[in-house]
Design a protein around this nucleic acid. Sequence first.
DNA 1: TGTACATCAGTGAACGCGCGTTCACTGATGTAC
DNA 2: TGTACATCAGTGAACGCGCGTTCACTGATGTAC
Lengths: 224, 224
Amino acid sequence: VAQTSNPRRERYRRETREEAKEIALAQLAEAGIHGISLNAIAKALGMSGPALYRYFDGRDALLTELISDAYRDLSGAVRAGFEAAGTDTGNGETFRAVAHALHGWARRHPDRYLLIYGTPVPGYHAPPETTQIAASLMRTVLEACAALGPSSTGSRDALTAHLEGSRPWGGEPDADASVKGLALRAWARLHGVISLEVQGQFAGMGFDPDVLFESEVQAIVRDS
Amino acid sequence: VAQTSNPRRERYRRETREEAKEIALAQLAEAGIHGISLNAIAKALGMSGPALYRYFDGRDALLTELISDAYRDLSGAVRAGFEAAGTDTGNGETFRAVAHALHGWARRHPDRYLLIYGTPVPGYHAPPETTQIAASLMRTVLEACAALGPSSTGSRDALTAHLEGSRPWGGEPDADASVKGLALRAWARLHGVISLEVQGQFAGMGFDPDVLFESEVQAIVRDS
DNA sequence: TGTACATCAGTGAACGCGCGTTCACTGATGTAC
DNA sequence: TGTACATCAGTGAACGCGCGTTCACTGATGTAC
């Protein structure tokens, strides 16, 4: 993929790449990951297939970029929720803000959420960059859980004991094992609702997923 | 797809169909849903592509059958766990048995679990049969949750109120709204851990998912 | 101001590939008389 | 026991399709002198 130092050309390049990715996301929404096709994107952009190779190294590179973008975007949205939360008055405001940021992002971008947390494509290897984004997202979750205060019921349970001495998750310095346990359980719990909701598994059951999500968030805060 | 009344031929038909499905599942494991190919299956069976049309109406029919089979299998495994559980002594034995049956099945058949609960393929419509299987699985979960006894903390929460008067989930007679709430939350919670585990999202975090799952099961029983 | 050159976005033809699916057929097996 | 017929699993050729990717190229734009 080529480079330019000309500012006008550079800007045009950026815009075209952006537009291509948007079309790719539309294809993702409409036909799944397999529906993302370089040739079809090029046609939608009004250019011929091979022209896209000026902008992306190939299909895999584009896919990788979509995943990284989504992950970074999600992590950023959650972080923003964390930082926008007011001071914690003991009611778990920070955690609630983080949970709702996560949920809100997933609802706004269901396909991109599944790009990150959906069925993995066998044989596809996430770029090393991904690990770092995952860590920074985990860091935010850990901090939000730490803000829930020292846990009451679960502080010395088997999970905490098991996590004692495990490797750091969100970079240094590492969090307490009890906080890690709390974060892990909270993450899985939130993901459980979000995943089922985003995949449409609640269809036809006649209830509002928001109520379920809110109920889970409250339970997590209460149980901490 | 043809029919026969000859018992020898019928048996051979059944075996070939079974073998074809096994190959399809191997392809699913190795290359994802898109990796399932009629031609490749036929070749693996030692026959030519079109020959498979004697056994399946086409690729979509095969896929549908794989999904139905998996769903039925999972539902059966969970039901078996339910029925194998001893009498409940107030420690949630029945629920624990159901939870572990679900988890065990998912671990044994990760790809098939994702066939049911993974990223949906846009445009693909599940057969009507699926609804019924989902209902019977839900019925087992509802019964397992009913066995947890009247809920303490969550009996009159917002979720229960919201579910009051919603349509029946597991056939008639319908369960209590509080039991439905319990079941919904338990389901989402178990799925959260299983889904992350099966998709490999815990890779590199250096802990045993079983411990997390067990911790969640205990928490569900405790909180009920 | 004008000319020579470099950059690089985009084209069009071509490649090999595997896919699902159809069609007319062959040939073995089983059945009825 | 032998012959005529029906069933049906499997074949091979062919269809149209869209895919990712390569290659040599054209032609517009920008730059250096």
